[in-house]
Amino acid sequence: MKNIKLILVFIFLCFLNINQSLANEKNLIFKITKNLRCLVCQGQSVHDSDSEFANSLKIVVQKKIDEGMSENEIYEFLKIKFGDWILYDPGLNKKTYILWLLPILLFLIGGAIIIKFFKINKIK
């Protein structure tokens, strides 16, 4: 038993070392373009798309990063140009309170129902 576990652990650590060098290379442009909707495609992100629009937008985002704009500034910039539709991450604002909070609310209600279930049980 113990041996098996040790072997498993060892194997996993080996796997991870192989990929270590690759892990650090994630960069900002991928993160940003993955969060942008390609407006001329059907449900694809700019990062994933190879359309003319997406390719140009990738260049623009890279340029803005080089100019020293932060991630949020770039989102703001694109939101003004193309509207909220371009962002895959709908931030928490007036339009999206229900979107973000309703699932959490339902979760709490679910919890309450389960607790109530036990209370009824106890009484009976």
Binding site: N55, S56, I59
Partner: peptide
């Protein structure tokens, strides 16, 4: 040349 000016304008095609 690379479509970036169109993006600045907010054009997408």
């Amino acid at each position: 040349e690379n479509g970036t000016i169109a993006i600045e304008w907010g054009a997408y095609g």
